[in-house]
Design a protein around this nucleic acid. Structure first.
Length: 727
DNA sequence: TCCTGCACCT
């Protein structure tokens, strides 16, 4: 402390402490109460030193009390009026404490007649979310006789970029003014223009500005690379990154972050690895943000192990690092690792936030575990944070996917925020659809319209799929036609839903005609829906046609191969089944392993087909034998067409017994108290035989079985299923 | 006379 004073006094050459800021700032920062008064008395004769002293304090000011003291000292000595620089510092500091009103009061009081101060207050408003006020002040500059300069434009453009829907016109106007004043040649203004156009969705205009730049620095390139990435043009983003490197500019850590996001969108693991090498070579690894984006990049490429290696290798981790890693596990279906990491976060990591909550909710939705869902919900409530609409919607979706429609409805009603929007309604419409309640979905849609909520493309996808799952063909047609009345052009996904709806109902020719009518080229979802319908109704000819198209569009999609082999198997065309399998083998595709999860209380049990790892598997197989014997007395006949191998009937029956969902149900009956429903989640579609068997079991054992498969919920009770065998 | 400025992560 004393050493610092001495330095200030004894060095006559000392002006601003910029040369060695840490030497000066550090001792002052540790001073809890300022001593400017004592200091004033000693050196108030030298005004430039006084300014330097206050400047120093303002730079390191971290509590409001000190700030107020400095403010009042400067005001009483009259220094404030003559030092716009100190005023600006105080204005910025007030905004750091969220005290925009005080910042503004000071700005007004000093009769700011310098562009510099106007720029400062505009920047403060623009960066603290008060976009309108920033633009408002800007429009007053010129009439007040203050000319905007090259510093002004980036601030105002930033304000426009943060409210893209409303501000594009204003942004274009600013571009004109920059052109007129010649500031459009300033490299900072240009980067801000590119950014503004891109954030307002006008990437081409941004590109034009970029191409017109005579000189480009790292930020110019990065801005354009980011612009492409954020407008979901990852290929262009990468191309530009390579062009930049070809010109001998390597990019900095910000560039690496944007490129990582672009690669995440592409999901290309090879490019991901080469970027990782680039990051290591250039020494960007130490930046937390870089590490975070690498985690997200690897997770999106499906390589969660590499993501974890990055996470473990980070010297510093923030809340985003933890959330990214938890989300990464969740996205890749790695529920237990996600939960484990969350537990570690609670012990060693930063505090959880909304994003953590969303990741946990996604884990529950994926698992379909109601028990876990309730725990996560009460955990979020205990955080005592305001639940926003996104979180309400996710909670409703989670409960619906965990089979608890009542709680889902509750979440929908509990959300009383004014931002309840189309997506809130969409969640509920698709929730009803998931449970086969098509009529409720339609009813909800009517209510939505009555409340004046504008439906979007997702509303119609959810509605059509709800109709499809409930077999409401006529209603589905009406919904589809009503899109045109609302001047909404049906997209490929809507056609896919319609093909699914008609196809399931056996109207295969009508479905095919609809595809022919499509204004755009049918995509894989459309042909996939047709192929699925062909499987249900055993139409091999049309199925082959659909499969041919599909394999051109998505040759690597395992599901479509499996679907086609199902079509052949259902018609006992074993030779063709073999061919499809061969094709899959040649491409290195594997049918995903069936997996069913049964939960009760705090326990979660997972079963693979013919599982022998479960500690009680012998007992479980015994239970299945007993159940089948009982069911056969009531008329159950095993459905061998579900077995996709060319084997003897007897073997088929044996294979059927070992399906993962049957193991799970048998174990549920063994362990769960009478009267309690058995809740099961399966990663694939439930097989026909299991569907028949569960109806019998629900009767024989007088049990409710609630099963979520890859497509929807089935509630088995008293010998029938809520899907009315239509799925 | 100076001082202010552009790009990034769930």
């Amino acid at each position: 402390m004393h050493g610092c004073y001495r330095l200030l006094f004894h060095s006559s050459r000392l002006h601003l402490p910029e040369n060695q800021p840490t030497l000066f700032v550090f001792p002052f920062r540790s001073c809890s109460v300022l001593s400017p008064k004592t200091f004033d008395r000693k050196i108030s004769t030298n005004s430039s030193l006084v300014s330097a002293f206050y400047d120093l304090h303002l730079r390191s000011c971290n509590n409001l009390y000190s700030l107020e003291q400095i403010h009042s000292n400067l005001a009483t000595t009259g220094l404030l009026q003559h030092s716009p620089h100190l005023s600006a510092q105080i204005i910025v500091n007030y905004s750091k404490f969220g005290l925009l009103d005080r910042a503004r009061a000071l700005f007004d009081a000093v009769h700011a007649n310098r562009s510099f101060l106007w720029n400062t207050i505009i920047r403060v408003y623009a960066t603290s979310g008060h976009v309108d006020e920033a633009l408002h002040l800007y429009s007053f500059m010129r009439p007040t006789g203050i000319p905007p300069n090259n510093y002004t434009f980036p601030f105002v453009l930033k304000a426009c970029a943060s409210k893209p829907m409303l501000r594009l016109r204003r942004g274009r106007g600013l571009h004109c003014e920059a052109l007129k004043t010649g500031f459009d040649l300033d490299i900072f203004v240009q980067a801000a223009l590119v950014d503004m156009y891109a954030k307002c969705g006008e990437i081409d205009d941004g590109c034009q500005v970029f191409d017109g730049m005579l000189e480009k620095d790292i930020v110019s390139w990065t801005t354009m690379i980011t612009a492409y990435e954020q407008s979901t043009h990852p290929q262009e983003s990468l191309l530009l990154f390579r062009q930049m490197q070809a010109q001998g500019i390597g990019g900095d850590q910000v560039t690496a972050i944007s490129v990582a996001s672009a690669i995440a969108q592409l999901g290309d693991i090879k490019t991901a690895r080469s970027l990782h090498t680039h990051v290591i070579r250039n020494g960007f690894r130490g930046h937390v943000e870089v590490g975070n984006s690498l985690i997200a990049m690897y997770s999106n490429c499906g390589d969660v192990k590499s993501a974890r290696l990055v996470f473990d290798g980070m010297k510093e981790r923030d809340d985003i690092s933890w959330n990214s890693m938890i989300s990464g596990y969740s996205q890749n279906g790695n529920a237990s690792d996600a939960l484990l990491l969350f537990e570690q976060m609670r012990v060693h990591g930063p505090e959880s936030n909304m994003v953590t909550a969303l990741a946990l909710i996604s884990v529950c939705s994926h698992l379909g575990s109601l028990h876990l869902a309730k725990q996560v919900h009460s955990l979020i409530v205990s955080w005592k944070v305001d639940i926003n609409t996104l979180l309400w919607n996710s909670l409703a979706d989670m409960y619906a996917k965990c089979g608890d429609m009542d709680s889902a409805v509750q979440m929908f009603h509990d959300n009383r925020t004014s931002t309840k929007d189309a997506s809130s309604w969409n969640v509920m419409i698709s929730a009803y659809g998931l449970h086969g309640h098509g009529r409720e979905a339609l009813k909800l849609y009517q209510q939505m319209r009555a409340q004046g909520i504008q439906p979007d493309d997702i509303t119609f996808t959810s509605l059509l799929s709800a109709c499809s799952h409930a077999g409401l063909v006529e209603e589905g047609r009406e919904v589809f036609d009503s899109m045109k009345e609302l001047t909404m052009l049906p997209m490929a996904k809507h056609y896919a839903c319609m093909v699914d709806l008609l196809g399931r109902a056996g109207l295969l020719d009508e479905a095919f005609d609809l595809i022919a009518e499509m204004p755009s080229e049918p995509n894989d979802a459309v042909w996939g829906a047709l192929l699925g319908a062909c499987r249900i109704h055993g139409n091999m000819k049309l199925g082959e046609l659909a499969a041919k198209r599909l394999l051109c569009l998505e040759p690597e999609h395992t599901g479509y191969h499996v679907l086609m082999s199902n079509v052949y198997a259902a018609s006992t065309r074993w030779h063709e089944v073999g061919k499809v399998r061969e094709a899959m083998r040649d491409r290195g595709l594997k049918k995903p392993a069936a997996f069913s999860v049964l939960e009760f209380g705090r326990e979660v049990h997972g079963f693979h087909t013919a599982d022998q790892f479960h500690p009680e598997h012998v007992k479980i197989y015994g239970k299945i034998e007993g159940l089948i014997a009982e069911m056969k007395m009531k008329g159950y006949v095993p459905d061998g067409s579900c077995v996709l191998h060319d084997v003897e009937e007897e073997d088929k029956e044996h294979i059927l017994k070992l399906h993962s969902e049957k193991l799970a149900v048998a174990y549920g009956i063994m362990r769960l108290q009478d009267g309690l429903p058995i809740r099961i989640t399966k990663n694939l579609r439930i097989c026909n035989d299991c569907h028949v068997a569960f109806k019998f079991i629900s009767q024989v054992c007088n049990r409710m079985i609630i099963m979520r498969d890859a497509n929807r919920f089935h509630h088995f009770q008293d010998g029938s299923c809520s899907c009315k065998d239509y799925w």
